[in-house]
Design a protein around this nucleic acid. Structure first.
Lengths: 137, 137
DNA sequence: ATTTAATACTACCTTATGGTAGTATTAAAT
DNA sequence: ATTTAATACTACCATAAGGTAGTATTAAAT
């Protein structure tokens, strides 16, 4: 029960771009600043650009900037962009058909935690993230 | 953000054993009954036995039974037995040090969903699981 | 004693995720 | 025009999770 590395990286880097909106940042810089693996981050940024979350500027002095206002990018959008879309209806025990009329053994216990998780992912925007930068590594 | 297949399997099979406490069940039978991969289930059952959740009866007419009362086996115990112990303090963005005095960007938003998840895992026993068996496959 | 049906063990295969290497392409600066 | 520094692309490598195959061991039934 955890987030993938890729989603950790995506949230961290998008959050950084929001808090430092002045100019495009290169992957090399973000790699140094956020201590994320360089080549992997390159692929991730390209993907986020293809999905419309980032502007990409190629060539010398290029880099990436946010393509949308930070209050319009929600955590669920980020997860969707990296192919980990929230599957609200997926049964926690893996059953194809599982709902209130035909529930799995864990269905009822899972309802509340799931609702709060969904709420967090759907209603937390980049703009509403905590903004200290004291944490490194 | 999901449970592993292994944990799905473990919860399903332990739940089944609780609801059918009469006799030891062989892996071959449970494989048929729950539609879980036979060899993989064998490994899982052996592991659950080693971790003390199951009694194992070897030889002909052998099989597995619950080693503890169903109201003393909690979801977190099952996850721990399969090496996926709940890491309450793990930062959701992957930072080594992350707490209220030095929070990551998602720290506060994560508090409530995490608390409910933990509550579910720590306080849901096999005995308190929903007991219909209408779901198959 | 032999057969049979079960767990236990060892080794391997498959797939997805995370990560690396090298090169092509782009565009500013000189 | 050439150099430089950036993104984009393609291919590969490493690790872990999920899954399979074959065999050894155990113990009841005959």
């Amino acid at each position: 029960m955890h987030f993938s590395k890729t989603s950790e990286y995506a949230i961290r880097v998008l959050s950084y771009l929001h808090r430092h909106p002045t100019q495009p940042y290169s992957v090399a810089f973000l790699h140094e600043e956020l201590n994320l693996p360089y080549k992997y981050l390159t692929k991730l940024m390209t993907q986020l650009h293809k999905k419309g979350l980032l502007n990409s500027i190629r060539g010398r002095d290029g880099g990436f900037t946010l393509a949308l206002d930070a209050d319009k990018i929600f955590l669920c959008d980020i997860l969707e962009a990296i192919g980990e879309a929230l599957e609200s209806n997926r049964c926690i025990l893996g059953f194809e058909k599982c709902d209130s009329s035909n529930p799995c053994a864990l269905h009822n216990q899972w309802l509340k935690p799931k609702a709060l998780l969904e709420d967090m992912l759907k209603n937390t925007s980049l703009a509403s993230l905590h903004s200290t930068e004291s944490i490194k590594f």
